[in-house]
């Protein structure tokens, strides 16, 4: 009996356990590489301590990337959660859930590479955005969005809002649907307006939706890479650099693998600020 229990544990859990062990082993490996002098196409594993970290942190690219990532998190998370909640509410109000949900989910389903490519064309001098601005008489605002260092970062941040709004909507839709209908009905009977229902009944009840959307969107903004790669390559200059892109450039362009690994480790540490509370929260909901 005891033996067969172990046997079934190994059959069911063996593969995923092995992969989890490999996974964490590789994280450790990355940390080790970040402390070596592997800075050319030739692999070298001589231990140099924290030297690469000091080099990386003092670079201008790192500073710009970090600031850009922070801006990205703030300017992406706020509109995406807020719009997600409002639109989820409006969609439920109209009752046309399938069609609207599908429309907003399309950008969520496609790759960030393609999203970036489509938006490069949208932001082009004669692309969709400038054409629309001219149509509504705001032609003076038209500009080459991605080659202007003042707008490039924000233009890219908007692409991620466009992509993740669908995700935010379905999270809040589920949260709103989880609210006890009688609460809303009681408020309506008491003469509350649509806005009052939203403000005083729905908003406080969708806390759970925020607890999911905020950390997960924050993580997405921290991980952002593909859209920068295809749309601007970090340019103009280094104005749209982000940590993940800097890591890639260091490791796979300059072949400073150890420096790339150091940036990856920094990215990992930053993400843990969000991941550990989130995983703890998920664990509690799971088994609690």
């Amino acid at each position: 009996m005891k033996l067969s229990k172990i046997r079934y544990f190994l059959i069911f859990m063996g593969p995923i356990l092995t992969i989890t062990i490999i996974f964490y082993f590789m994280i450790g490996w990355c940390i080790y590489i970040s402390m070596t002098d592997w800075r050319s196409a030739r692999v070298s594993m001589k231990f140099v301590g924290l030297r690469n970290y000091f080099d990386v942190v003092q670079s201008r690219e790192f500073y710009v990337s970090l600031i850009n990532n922070i801006q990205w998190i703030a300017l992406f998370m706020l509109p995406t959660t807020f719009l997600g909640l409002v639109i989820a509410y409006l969609i439920i109000l109209t009752g046309k859930e399938t069609i609207f949900r599908t429309i907003f989910l399309l950008p969520t389903a496609i790759s960030m590479v393609v999203a970036g490519t489509l938006w490069v064309w949208m932001y082009a001098t004669n692309g969709g955005i400038n054409t629309l601005l001219r149509m509504i008489g705001l032609g003076s605002l038209a500009r080459p969005w991605l080659s202007d260092p003042r707008t490039a970062l924000y233009a890219l941040i908007f692409v991620t809002v466009w992509q993740y709004l669908g995700f935010s909507i379905i999270v809040f839709e589920a949260a709103i649907k989880g609210i006890d209908r009688t609460l809303i009905e009681a408020a309506v009977v008491d003469g509350a307006s649509g806005f009052q229902v939203f403000r005083y009944v729905i908003l406080p009840q969708v806390r759970h939706g925020f607890l999911i959307a905020v950390p997960l969107l924050g993580l997405s903004a921290l991980k952002v890479f593909d859209v920068v790669f295809v749309a601007t390559r970090g340019g103009p200059g280094i104005s749209t650099y982000v940590l993940a892109y800097y890591m890639w450039v260091k490791a796979f362009w300059w072949r400073f693998m150890a420096d790339g690994a150091a940036i990856a480790v920094i990215l990992l540490l930053l993400s843990l600020v969000l991941v550990i509370p989130y995983a703890t929260y998920a664990l509690r909901r799971w088994f609690g």
């Binding site: 995923i16 356990l17 989890t20 996974f23 964490y24 590789m26 994280i27 490996w29 990355c30 590489i33 997960l216 993580l219 921290l222 991980k223 890479f225 993940a244 890591m247 490791a251 693998m257 790339g260 690994a261 990856a264 480790v265 990215l267 990992l268 993400s271 843990l272 969000l274 991941v275 550990i276 989130y278 995983a279 703890t280 998920a282 664990l283 799971w286 088994f287």
Partner: peptide
């Protein structure tokens, strides 16, 4: 619980950290 936690953390961290290894 510990295993669930490890797997969840593994699923959410930027997987980029595995790239170079």
């Amino acid at each position: 619980n510990a295993l669930f936690f490890m797997i969840a953390v593994g699923a959410f961290i930027p997987y980029y950290v595995l790239l170079i290894p």
